Measured scan of single mutants.
Amino acid sequence: CHSECLGNCSQPDDPTKCVACRNFYLDGRCVETCPPPYYHFQDWRCVNFSFCQDLHHKCKNSRRQGCHQYVIHNNKCIPECPSGYTMNSSNLLCTPCLGPCPKVCHLLEGEKTIDSVTSAQELRGCTVINGSLIINIRGGNNLAAELEANLGLIEEISGYLKIRRSYALVSLSFFRKLRLIRGETLEIGNYSFYALDNQNLRQLWDWSKHNLTITQGKLFFHYNPKLCLSEIHKMEEVSGTKGRQERNDIALKTNGDQASCENELLKFSYIRTSFDKILLRWEPYWPPDFRDLLGFMLFYKEAPYQNVTEFDGQDACGSNSWTVVDIDPPLRSNDPKSQNHPGWLMRGLKPWTQYAIFVKTLVTFSDERRTYGAKSDIIYVQTDATNPSVPLDPISVSNSSSQIILKWKPPSDPNGNITHYLVFWERQAEDSELFELDYCLKGLKLPSRTWSPPFESEDSQKHNQSEYEDSAGECCSCPKTDSQILKELEESSFRKTFEDYLHNVVFVPRKT
């Protein structure tokens, strides 16, 4: 048989008469490798580009789960590009990614509803959504962080984005990388972005840091009482949809009607710091009717980097990364020049730590249904340095008659930039024990000054392991946590139920 035959053949030295091919099969003959313009397919066939392209389009058009959109890589027609490569849609070739590779997620039936953290986790790592997304989240724990972890990498949506009755959302900033909504599939009414009845939605994105392009379709905003109209108009300008909307697409009466839409800028007039305090004062603000001013709200939190936005980490279910302080308005003076500047002394802060701070007014709604208010920009203030805590785990070892090696770990709280350490030492008198000992005694162990690591005695271990207080009263049991108490109650309830079950099964009433 021919060298490319495997198993047997019907005619000697003829690659077209093989029972099976050793390498690849091409047009009725066995070959060692697939010549151009053919590609290896499933490690035994040679196919042309049209064959591989037909497989790709067949799966793409069917949208069946589990099928493969075949691509070409290293002269092979394979189910998908290997790690580190992405497909070129024009020629199906796998090309190296520039940075992290995109991950295209194809949605069944063309859309997916995100109504819980669990459903959001199914899209973790996706960068391109081939379909439409509907966000409908009523509640949950730590929602802002969970949504950002699972949806934060999405850069492109081919269909539309719909935010509907998501009472738990305060902001859409968890879509931190969303840059493009194509609108290839539109919501009824030709809408590519749809926001309806979101009672706590206050911000779409921080438009000073976020760009969003909507290729096709219109915007729809109705019944978002805490979303200011200025935020919607800003989205029109940034996304390129200005002029597409009709009169009733953006409701003037049901958007922002319960919001404090600040239209003035508060400026800080005085800032002073110490290692654990920050004193702030800002310019006074009074609405047209000074009785509408209820006070100020001061927001602050630790910020290692200057990239904080107002609604980071917030949701309507209680999660809030900001510390909020309510401040009463100052006494009002008739003389504008003698107006008191409101302020606040922030206490209990960490030394040498940068804080993000902003302040906003708290006002009631005027009778004319106009909203007044003022808010400052987010500023960054760093507390002063102070003395560091003591170095940890000092170790001293003498390696000769004239040297001592000293080692330690950095302090747990540096409280500033540590530039150097101060080492103090003092000579001590020799131990009298060394002169009084009889060095001729056998088995004498000389006193040693070398360091030995501390260890816990058996008594201390027994005390720590004991669940009861000892007789001397030195140790006591740790208080039980809520989960331990709940577990004990469940076990007790189970024992009672099981005992009742045994009584009912074992003891049967005697027939009379």
Rank of each mutant, 00 (worst) to 15 (best):
V324H: 06
Q199T: 10
L349K: 01
M346S: 04
C126V: 01
L178M: 14
E148S: 05
L252V: 12
L161N: 00
D206R: 06
F174Q: 02
E155R: 15
R179V: 05
N248V: 04
S338Q: 11
L294G: 12
T323H: 15
C317E: 03
L265G: 09
T127D: 09
R244D: 05
I114S: 00
G139Y: 04
E302T: 03
R281S: 12
N307A: 10
I327D: 01
Q216E: 03
Y223L: 14
F311G: 03
L151P: 00
I214F: 11
W282I: 03
H233N: 03
W286E: 05
G140A: 09
F220V: 02
V397F: 14
E148T: 06
L252P: 13
W408S: 01
F311C: 02
E155Q: 13
Q216N: 04
E237H: 12
P284I: 07
T215M: 11
F193R: 00
D384V: 14
L186S: 09
N224T: 03
T213L: 09
S333T: 15
Y191F: 07
E109I: 03
E236G: 04
N263P: 12
L107G: 06
H106E: 15
S333N: 13
Y167T: 12
L147Q: 00
A149W: 12
A251Y: 10
D326M: 03
L107D: 05
G152H: 08
K226Q: 11
L266H: 01
H106S: 11
C261I: 02
G152M: 04
Q203I: 12
G256D: 03
G295T: 02
A303E: 01
V170K: 05
T371W: 13
N387H: 15
F358D: 01
A120T: 12
S400W: 06
P394Y: 08
L107F: 04
I114N: 02
P394K: 05
W322S: 01
N255T: 04
R179S: 09
S239D: 05
Y194N: 15
K162G: 12
K253S: 10
D315S: 10
R164M: 13
M297P: 00
T353N: 03
P287F: 08
L265Q: 07
V308N: 01
P304I: 06
R369V: 09
L161H: 00
I379R: 10
I157Y: 00
N150S: 13
D197T: 09
L265R: 14
A144Q: 14
K162T: 08
F299R: 15
I271Q: 02
Q258F: 04
T353A: 06
L153F: 07
R247I: 14
T185W: 05
E302K: 12
N150T: 03
K375A: 09
A149S: 06
I405R: 12
N263R: 10
K409R: 13
H233S: 13
D289K: 04
T383M: 02
S171G: 13
E310T: 02
D292I: 10
L108N: 14
E262M: 11
D249F: 05
K277N: 04
S166I: 06
Y194C: 14
Y194I: 11
M346V: 08
H341Y: 09
Y300T: 10
E264H: 02
I163S: 03
T118A: 04
N198S: 05
C126E: 00
V381M: 11
L201N: 00
G217D: 04
T215Y: 11
S398T: 15
P329Q: 13
T127V: 03
S116L: 05
L266F: 04
G189N: 07
L172H: 01
P225L: 07
A356S: 04
S321L: 07
E122I: 04
Y191H: 12
V359S: 02
W344C: 11
A144P: 03
L252T: 11
N136R: 10
N211H: 15
I114R: 00
K407H: 08
N255C: 09
C261S: 03
A303Q: 15
M235P: 00
N211K: 13
K162P: 00
L227K: 00
P225S: 06
G256A: 14
I114L: 08
K162M: 12
W207E: 02
K409M: 02
H106V: 07
S166H: 03
Q245C: 12
K360C: 14
E187Q: 03
L345Y: 12
E246S: 06
S192Y: 01
K226I: 08
A356E: 01
E187H: 07
W205G: 06
G125F: 15
V170S: 03
S333Y: 04
I157D: 00
S269K: 10
Y300G: 01
L298Y: 01
Q382R: 08
V170T: 10
Y191I: 13
W207Y: 05
L196R: 14
D335W: 09
L331R: 05
E368K: 10
D393Q: 15
E283W: 07
V324P: 09
Q216L: 11
E237R: 02
K301L: 04
R281H: 05
Y167P: 08
T323N: 10
Q199K: 09
F174P: 08
V363H: 03
F365L: 14
F268V: 06
P330F: 15
N136W: 07
N142D: 03
N307P: 08
R247S: 10
L212Q: 03
L279F: 07
K226W: 13
A149I: 15
I163T: 06
Y300R: 04
A168G: 02
S173E: 10
A251K: 09
L362V: 04
C261R: 02
S376W: 00
V397M: 12
L133F: 13
E283A: 15
P410A: 15
L204D: 00
Y160E: 02
L229F: 15
E237K: 15
G217T: 00
Y285W: 06
L345D: 13
